[in-house]
Amino acid sequence: MAEMNTSLGARVETALTTKNPALRLALGACPLLAVATRAASSLGMGVATACALVCAALFGAIFGKITPEKGRLPVFLLICAAFAGAAHMVLQGWFPAVSEGLGLYAPMIAVSCLFLGGAGRIGEDGIGKALADAVGMGVGFICLMTALGAVRELIGCGTVFGAAVLPAGFEPMLMLAMPAGGFLALGLLMGVCNAVSGRNKKKGASA
């Protein structure tokens, strides 16, 4: 029974504190999965999230130092929410198309930041290191979201960034635009990433 009771908090905390960047990226993409159906809007969401993430990481690193360990996650969540709100307002003003695509999922940018920023570990690193990590994660996240949106758009509607790239006879696979398709695309994308990085690692080891 002991094993069964492995603490829930600890389990979720592993998701929040994982050092594995690929896993953090995927966890960050989950909240936005439902709306990442087009390459262009996914790119927009990715950029917005990345910006919010960098700002949140900066403030997180500052406040993290002075917050007791138990309070770090709530504080970071509030910081993320604040910058997610700001990012949303910027989108609304300058990129209404992306903002519309987000719809009610806009606040999810906050949760994305939480996972991307490794909320459970904020305050552990210095400001410089935290910023570098956030920029790295932000760039990775933009790539992941764009790839996810592009794949789903290509197969789900036959276009990429709105341009028809497949022959006229192609009949789009509607499932890709649904949540079911989102789960599948993200899962396969992660699998492909793992396979590629695994192969690189093996090459590195043998060289």
Partner: peptide, 11 residues
Amino acid sequence: SLGGSLMPVAA
């Protein structure tokens, strides 16, 4: 059994 803190659930 929930491991003391539930705060991560907020994520």
